[in-house]
Nucleic acid binder design. Structure first.
Length: 171
DNA sequence: AAGAAGATTCGCT
DNA sequence: GCGAATCTTCTTA
């Protein structure tokens, strides 16, 4: 969830990808830099990075300090503040609001200002416990990477229209 | 010091 | 389907 003066936005996470230690496709693979330093924080912190000159992506760190690993949030199902998300994303189609890592971040209004914050603490941006999905959790290879493509490290809610990727990766 | 590729998305053809 | 937008880091000269 994300609280801002303009309102609260919240979504249910329906798709993630893991980037584990020693993963050649991970940003932490070549060591710590100014850009990825927050990826090396204690688990539960936000790592926000800018990619392709256009979009931000949001990760949650998943290891002890200094390791450098995390989980990329790839898609959310909008739950609260939908009107605000529609304004930020310039679309009213529900499945276009949070389907994709760049879209999700824009819908929630997350930016580089949120890089490194504690998602389990008392900030504007945090992870909340919600109702557990009744749907099955699917597994697949990760999307959009060119190294370590065989690793099955993507997890998603089966059959959800809010999950990104081609149809056979949503079933 | 300069060029290329990357955990992406959008608009036009 | 292809190219644009344009940041960070790695590779090569």
């Amino acid at each position: 969830m994300h609280d801002l003066p303009e309102g609260r936005t919240a979504g249910r996470i329906v798709e993630t990808e893991a980037y584990v230690p020693g993963d050649a496709s991970g940003h932490a693979y070549r060591g710590q830099t100014a850009r990825n330093r927050s990826l090396f924080l204690e688990r539960g912190h936000a790592y926000v990075y800018f990619t392709y000159g256009m979009w931000h992506c949001l990760n949650v760190t998943s290891e002890t300090p200094g390791v450098g690993a995390g989980v990329l949030l790839r898609a959310i199902e909008p739950v609260e503040g939908i009107a605000l998300m529609e304004r930020r994303r310039s679309t009213t189609r529900p499945y276009d609001l949070g389907r994709g890592p760049g879209r999700l971040v824009q819908a929630l209004g997350v930016g580089r200002a949120d890089d490194g914050v504690d998602l389990c603490g008392a900030g504007n941006l945090w992870l909340a416990h919600g109702a557990r999905s009744a749907a099955e959790i699917g597994e697949s290879v990760r999307i959009g990477i060119t190294r370590e493509t065989a690793a099955v490290l993507r997890f998603y809610e089966r059959g959800s229209p809010f999950v990104s990727g081609p149809r056979h990766l949503r079933a």
